[in-house]
C-alpha cells in the first residue's frame, strides 16, 4: 500500500484573503455570462397536425400490435407516436415521450389491460389511454400536463392514426 502524502501547508493569510474575495467576485460575475449562454433547441420541425397514417398488424413493423400490450412506434408529422394495443378491440396512440422526463415509451412503457394504464419504466408514472395521469412518478416529481394523445380508428386488424 502506498503511503499517503501529507496534506499541503495552508496558504499565507494575505493571499488567502485576497483570493477569497477575488474568487467570490469572479464566481458571481461568471454566472452572468453563463446564464446568457443557456441553450434550448429542438432539431426536429414543429409537428404538423391533420396528418394520417394507416397501419396493419399483419405488417412486420406493426406485428407487435397483434397481441394486447404490444407497442409500435411511428413517425408522423415530425413526431414519434406510440401505438399500444390496449385490448382485443382497441389501439390507442400517444406521444412517444413520457410527460415526466421524456423517456421513450416504446422502450420503457408497459401496458396493463387490467389496470388500464401505461407505466413508464423510468419513474413509474402511469397514464390512461386518454392521457389522463393515473399515478405520479415515484421520484417525487409532479406531472402537471398529461401526454398528448391522438385519434385512432381500429377494426381489429387495420387502423389509422391521425395527428
Amino acid at each position: 500500500m502506498a503511503e499517503p502524502l501529507a496534506p499541503p501547508a495552508p496558504a499565507t493569510q494575505p493571499r488567502r484573503e485576497f483570493l477569497c474575495k477575488f474568487g467570490a467576485l469572479a464566481s458571481s460575475a461568471a454566472l452572468v455570462p453563463l446564464a446568457s449562454c443557456e441553450v434550448s433547441e429542438l432539431h426536429t420541425p414543429k409537428p404538423a397536425a391533420g396528418l394520417s397514417m394507416n397501419f396493419d398488424v399483419a405488417a412486420t413493423e406493426f406485428k407487435a400490435l397483434a397481441t394486447v400490450g404490444g407497442k409500435a412506434k411511428v413517425a408522423l408529422g415530425g413526431q414519434d407516436i406510440l401505438l399500444v394495443r390496449a385490448s382485443q378491440a382497441e389501439v390507442f396512440a400517444m406521444i412517444n415521450a413520457c410527460a415526466h422526463q421524456a423517456c421513450p415509451l416504446d422502450q420503457v412503457g408497459s401496458w396493463s389491460e387490467k389496470d388500464g394504464a401505461l407505466t413508464c419504466g423510468c419513474h413509474q408514472a402511469k397514464f390512461a389511454k386518454d392521457g389522463k395521469i393515473v399515478s405520479q412518478p415515484i421520484n417525487g416529481d409532479k406531472i402537471t400536463k398529461p401526454p398528448q394523445t391522438f385519434k385512432v380508428t381500429f377494426d381489429g386488424n387495420k387502423g389509422t392514426v391521425t395527428t
Binding site: 464566481s27 461568471a30 454566472l31 453563463l34 446564464a35 449562454c37 443557456e38 441553450v39 434550448s40 433547441e41 429542438l42 432539431h43 426536429t44
Partner: peptide, 21 residues
C-alpha cells in the same frame, strides 16, 4: 463547497445548455 457548472447536452433531437449550481 460551491460548484457552479455549465452543462451542454445534445443529441439528434435537441440541445440543452444550462448553468447549474
Amino acid at each position: 463547497e460551491l460548484r457552479p457548472e455549465y452543462r451542454l447536452l445534445k443529441n439528434e433531437a435537441w440541445t440543452i445548455g444550462q448553468w447549474a449550481l
